[in-house]
Amino acid sequence: MNNHRTIKNIEQELIDDFSLFETWEEKYEYLIDLGKKLAPLDPAFKTEEYKIKGCQSSVWIHSFAKDGFVYFEGDSDAIIVRGLVGLMITVMNGQPAKEIVEAPLEFINTIGLSSHLAQTRSNGLRAMIKQMKMDAGAWQVNAENKTVE
């Protein structure tokens, strides 16, 4: 468990990475690249049930829990948003449910993408985060109920 990186650790790494980018092009190329590299989501999860409706693009998030940690997979039909999905997965994947639920995720404001990506209507980044936290919350409740049993 010593090599477990917390959400805060990963956020800081991303902040450091993004601080190396001097132009907007580099930031977006990074996101686009992340989007292209994101493992494709099993089509079985690309359904209405897993869809987060943004105004312009579709985002699907699927999660599962293992040994108290929550894992995410996701996809989008827009590549930059796909990159954002990848970014959020990088931060939250394999973290304890409680940590995910409570994470303030301040790095989004620090890395300098927020101005047009954080608006709910334009891409649903906020909706995406909300869904991931809700998923984590559900897994948390699930785990607590199991303990009671």
Partner: peptide, 20 residues
């Protein structure tokens, strides 16, 4: 190319178009 990706990149270049 998804229109939303295009709109984001165009906005970074000062260009306002509508997508969707």
């Amino acid at each position: 190319v998804h229109p939303q990706d295009l709109a984001i990149l165009l906005d970074n270049q000062g260009i306002a178009v509508r997508t969707g």
